[in-house]
């Protein structure tokens, strides 16, 4: 004889990643490393912003390391290497995002002993990284004016889940006929605690302000 049962499972499938993220976070905090995760569209300026910060950190005598995530290739990895900082390249293959598990492995590969700051550049994507926190202190999302003025309206959730919103390429705002204020207002309309910073990574503008916000 069979009987029908109704089982309460209560298992969060995305919770495993969050647990690993917490583990990464505890590990980094114990090492005394401040950590930042940069998400944003392909070409929004994530790499250039991190490069700019790395150089200014050097002036402060602080050492940074980078985990460079990309679907494929070594372009960003090579760019970071030029700055003489430790870099681990993570190719996700088909996956559309980094996850906490990949970051855990990358941390294993990196010599963290004299690092003060760690940057993680996520795969260029405004959607999927939202489901996968990595365990950094701060998640920054980068949007550039060359993507138009409606990216926050189109992808509100990833912006709402981020701690810092960077509006980049403001040097091109006029040429694009995009008013950064529209993005700025949309960011505020989300009603989260996210701090908004405008930057021009190409000419090094706003990087110091961004570092103030990141508290480095």
């Amino acid at each position: 004889m069979h009987k029908t049962v109704d089982i309460d499972v209560g298992k969060d499938i995305l919770g495993r990643n969050r647990e690993l993220a917490r583990k990464n976070h505890t590990f980094l905090v114990e090492k005394g490393i401040r950590s930042f995760d940069f998400v944003g569209s392909i070409g929004s300026g994530k790499t250039l912003l991190i490069e700019g910060i790395i150089e200014l950190l050097k002036e402060k005598g602080l050492r940074a390391g980078v985990i460079a995530g990309d679907v494929a290739g070594e372009e960003d990895y090579m760019r970071f290497r030029e700055h003489g900082v430790p870099v681990v390249n993570v190719n996700t293959g088909k996956e559309c995002h980094l996850d906490a598990h990949l970051v855990e492995h990358a941390l294993d590969e990196m010599n963290l002993d004299d690092l003060d700051v760690l940057f993680v550049e996520n795969v260029g994507n405004l959607v999927c990284p939202g489901d996968f926190p990595l365990g950094t202190d701060v998640r920054a999302v980068v949007v550039s004016v060359t993507e138009g003025d409606d990216m926050i309206k189109k992808h509100p959730v990833i912006f709402a889940l981020s701690d810092v919103i960077v509006i980049n390429k403001i040097d091109l705002a006029e040429a694009m006929e995009v008013d950064p204020k529209v993005l700025q207002n949309d960011a505020h309309a989300l009603g989260t605690k996210a701090v908004v910073v405008q930057t021009d990574a190409k000419h090094g503008k706003g990087i110091t302000e961004l570092m103030d916000v990141l508290q480095i």
């Binding site: 009987k3 049962v5 089982i7 298992k11 969060d12 499938i13 605690k193």
Partner: peptide
């Protein structure tokens, strides 16, 4: 402004089975 507490889960709630 507030902090988001939840809403990003994917939970297996119930299984009805024989």
């Amino acid at each position: 402004p507030t902090s988001v507490v939840s809403g990003n889960e994917c939970i297996i709630r119930r299984i009805v089975a024989d």
